[in-house]
């Protein structure tokens, strides 16, 4: 058993778990944040994507103890003051989700993707960057549209702020 401490969605949390406990299970079961999902066993579907120290990672392929001391953001930590994050808002506006199961991972992936590429994202890059996220409902069409729209809007917002 390990006692671990990390920062999750801006708050410091501690918990006890087996050394073999996966980060995703620590987040879901110890912290009760069930927005992060498990959709496969082989690190391919991306339903479990969160941000660790500012980068997107698959929480099903990391032990909770590996993440001790790090700063984690989950889907629950994205909206601020009741306002959807621009990526969340774009997914809603463009119908980028159906059953919602892959959605948290898709949104966290999109936020990371936009952070790395900015508003210069194009369709081919978005599709390539989604290699690690599987959606069975949308055919990706509207997910791609939503990410491009969010990138444009966030890029625009950044420019306006500069």
């Amino acid at each position: 058993m390990a006692k671990i401490t990390m920062t999750v969605n801006g708050r410091q949390v501690s918990g006890t778990c087996d050394d073999r406990t996966l980060l995703v299970h620590f987040i879901r079961e110890n912290l009760g944040l069930t927005g992060t999902h498990v959709g496969c066993d082989t690190s391919q579907c991306g339903a479990c994507v969160i941000h660790m120290d500012g980068l997107s990672v698959k929480s099903c392929s990391i032990l909770a103890v590996q993440a001790a001391g790090s700063s984690i953001t989950t889907i629950e930590g994205l909206a601020k003051d009741g306002e959807l994050h621009p990526v969340q808002a774009a997914f809603k506006a463009h119908h980028g989700l159906q059953c919602g199961f892959c959605t948290p991972g898709m949104v966290m992936t999109a936020v990371d993707m936009i952070a790395r590429h900015g508003s210069g994202l194009d369709e081919a890059t978005v599709r390539y960057e989604l290699e690690g996220n599987i959606c069975r409902c949308t055919g990706y069409h509207n997910i791609v549209k939503a990410i491009l729209a969010a990138a444009a809007e966030m890029g625009g917002a950044r420019q306006a702020a500069e």
Partner: peptide, 13 residues
């Protein structure tokens, strides 16, 4: 736009 989206988008599904 869908009424149900907010809970899915914020991890509250």
């Amino acid at each position: 736009a869908r009424k149900e989206d907010k809970r899915f988008l914020t991890g509250k599904g």
